[in-house]
Design a protein around this nucleic acid. Structure first.
Lengths: 202, 202
DNA sequence: TCATTTAATTGAACAATGTTCATTTTTCAA
DNA sequence: TTGAAAAATGAACATTGTTCAATTAAATGA
């Protein structure tokens, strides 16, 4: 059998990503196999290889759609102009997403793309778009001329928050007393911002 | 054939871990298969299952030995008592290890233990032992009574540094201008410490 | 010394995986 | 109506983790 016209290429792509998302959300990334995705969308495994180079490519596309989701959620927040409270609001929104979609988050950040595969530029752009929001939030800490400095601080803060969520998610971060992830992340934001202000005064 | 007396259980364990390390160092964690390890040590795949519950268990043990290595390297550093320079020395040592043994580092931090497997307590202890060194380095920033506060700050700094190395290693951190990992990590240490000092003054 | 028990080691076997590709079938254009 | 192009298939292949009955060497005891 062949050449059904049930769906065109775009629809098929959307179907596949949707199925992948559903599988990852309910059973984790380990359940994301070519045969499983094919079953869900009612096509054969081979068809997936018309759409994606391989399974890793499919995962990258799934992660791309997760990044879009995250962006929509986070960019909906209104910023007050106060770096600390804005960063914490962003953080809260981010942690909410992590709690609501642990499987997707795990696939996004803890599943490592094989070194044989270079990260596509559209993927990098999606990350940058997210980081840009953080950049805007901390911009009041810097003069308009310090674009590079602002960008660097945003990168570091972003990576720092990622480190906390990532390690604690893997159980690799021994939590102190009754601290939870939110406490630690909040501590990082407060301290980091205080550090920037303190150094600016000198 | 069976019951060779070439090696006792301990020797066999050491052989297997050694083989695993060798494979991971030269060809990455993807090459770490039961059959590969068995080939290297001259035993059959089945024998590995007398020593380890499964491959993930073997990886956890390999990571345990990597943590020991890291501890030996990092604990050899003499601390001056100045938090910033001590943290940066630790950081430098850590980054050296990452550069020298990317495969082992990747297996240690970017390979996620499946959620079905709980992190063993001896493994957590090895991590804590490493973090303790960082705790000592930043201790001068706090009063002796602030043990919890010190521990929390060490956790956050540790996780933050991990976030930077981890993301940049995966190509998921768009680096600003000519910044490299060391610059970003250094920036985090400086700013974070300045933040602690600044807040202590108030 | 020989028979029996115990334990280690094997390797064939199984189910599941990613991936390929000759074959088949449908659609589209001429 | 015919022929070419494209889409979809699913059987097939190589590999994977893992199990376990069978096999063999060592340890034990008489």
């Amino acid at each position: 059998m062949a050449r059904r016209s049930d769906h065109n290429r775009e629809e098929l792509y959307a179907l596949a990503i949707g199925a992948a998302r559903q599988i990852v959300e309910s059973d984790g990334i380990k359940a994301l196999t070519a045969r499983n995705v094919a079953d869900v969308i009612g096509y054969s495994p081979g068809t997936l290889y018309n759409l994606f180079d391989n399974l890793d490519d499919l995962i990258v596309h799934l992660n791309g759609s997760t990044l879009d989701d995250l962006f929509d959620k986070v960019s909906a927040l209104e910023q007050s102009g106060d770096p600390e409270s804005d960063c914490k609001a962003l953080l809260g929104s981010y942690l909410d997403y992590l709690n609501d979609h642990p499987g997707l988050w795990y696939a996004l950040f803890d599943y490592a793309i094989p070194t044989t595969m270079t990260v596509p530029s559209w993927y990098v752009r999606k990350i940058e778009r997210l980081m840009e929001i953080l950049r805007v939030a901390i911009a009041p800490l810097y003069a308009d001329t310090q674009m590079d400095e602002t960008a660097r601080a945003a990168s570091v803060l972003w990576a720092g928050l990622h480190g906390i969520t990532s390690l604690s998610n893997d159980g690799k971060l021994q939590l102190v007393s009754e601290d939870d992830v939110e406490d630690l992340a909040s501590f990082l934001v407060t301290t980091f911002i205080a550090g920037i202000q303190s150094r600016a005064r000198q």
